[in-house]
Amino acid sequence: MKLVALRTMSALALTFALQGCGISAPASVDGLRRVVGTDLIGARGATPEDQRMIDRTVVGICAAAVWTRAECAKHGERG
């Protein structure tokens, strides 16, 4: 009985530790898909249309505040 309780507690502790480290799965795949979108699929950065696809993806990521304002601004910089 004690071994079962210990295993259960260990599993719960690991679950909470992984969530605290930010490596757990997203709360909603559908939500993540709405933020990231599907524009990036097939984009290779070789054409102006590819760049528009990349930019549309970045807009969703920035709008959801996944990236900081500084990171979003950096995307728009020309190298």
Rank of each mutant, 00 (worst) to 15 (best):
residue 22 G to N: 05
residue 35 V to G: 08
residue 63 A to S: 14
residue 40 L to S: 07
residue 12 L to M: 07
residue 19 Q to K: 02
residue 70 A to M: 05
residue 17 A to L: 15
residue 21 C to P: 01
residue 29 V to R: 05
residue 2 K to M: 06
residue 62 C to S: 15
residue 22 G to V: 11
residue 48 P to L: 13
residue 19 Q to N: 02
residue 52 R to P: 01
residue 54 I to N: 02
residue 64 A to M: 10
residue 75 H to K: 05
residue 9 M to H: 03
residue 5 A to N: 09
residue 29 V to D: 07
residue 59 V to A: 15
residue 12 L to Y: 01
residue 49 E to K: 10
residue 68 T to N: 11
residue 8 T to W: 05
residue 75 H to G: 00
residue 21 C to M: 11
residue 70 A to E: 13
residue 78 R to D: 11
residue 76 G to I: 01
residue 73 A to F: 05
residue 41 I to E: 15
residue 58 V to R: 09
residue 30 D to S: 10
residue 58 V to Q: 13
residue 19 Q to W: 04
residue 14 L to T: 06
residue 50 D to P: 07
residue 72 C to W: 09
residue 77 E to S: 12
residue 11 A to E: 07
residue 19 Q to E: 03
residue 14 L to W: 06
residue 59 V to P: 01
residue 19 Q to I: 01
residue 45 G to F: 11
residue 3 L to G: 00
residue 24 S to Q: 07
residue 24 S to N: 13
residue 26 P to G: 03
residue 54 I to A: 13
residue 37 G to L: 10
residue 37 G to Q: 14
residue 42 G to A: 11
residue 11 A to M: 05
residue 56 R to P: 01
residue 25 A to T: 03
residue 72 C to Q: 10
residue 65 A to P: 00
residue 27 A to K: 03
residue 16 F to N: 01
residue 57 T to M: 09
residue 10 S to L: 13
residue 65 A to K: 08
residue 25 A to E: 10
residue 32 L to P: 00
residue 69 R to F: 06
residue 67 W to Y: 11
residue 46 A to F: 08
residue 77 E to T: 09
residue 69 R to A: 13
residue 24 S to I: 01
residue 63 A to Q: 15
residue 53 M to V: 04
residue 78 R to Q: 13
residue 32 L to D: 09
residue 35 V to S: 03
residue 36 V to D: 12
residue 19 Q to P: 00
residue 23 I to H: 07
residue 10 S to F: 08
residue 8 T to D: 10
residue 73 A to L: 14
residue 52 R to V: 06
residue 74 K to P: 00
residue 15 T to M: 05
residue 37 G to V: 09
residue 78 R to M: 07
residue 49 E to S: 15
residue 41 I to T: 07
residue 65 A to W: 04
residue 77 E to G: 09
residue 22 G to R: 01
residue 35 V to T: 15
residue 42 G to C: 10
residue 52 R to A: 14
residue 60 G to M: 08
residue 61 I to F: 02
residue 16 F to V: 03
residue 41 I to M: 12
residue 37 G to K: 11
residue 14 L to I: 04
residue 9 M to W: 02
residue 41 I to W: 14
residue 54 I to S: 07
residue 74 K to C: 08
residue 20 G to H: 07
residue 51 Q to A: 15
residue 18 L to A: 10
residue 6 L to K: 09
residue 76 G to P: 00
residue 17 A to E: 03
residue 76 G to Q: 12
residue 46 A to N: 13
residue 62 C to D: 10
residue 40 L to V: 15
residue 59 V to D: 09
residue 18 L to H: 03
residue 37 G to S: 15
residue 13 A to G: 05
residue 13 A to W: 02
residue 19 Q to D: 03
residue 21 C to V: 14
residue 42 G to Y: 14
residue 28 S to D: 14
residue 28 S to R: 03
residue 43 A to C: 10
residue 18 L to S: 06
residue 44 R to P: 00
residue 71 E to A: 14
residue 60 G to C: 08
residue 42 G to N: 09
residue 59 V to S: 12
residue 56 R to S: 05
residue 76 G to Y: 12
residue 4 V to L: 07
residue 9 M to G: 06
residue 51 Q to H: 15
residue 76 G to S: 10
residue 78 R to Y: 08
residue 70 A to T: 03
residue 22 G to M: 08
residue 35 V to C: 10
residue 29 V to S: 07
residue 3 L to N: 05
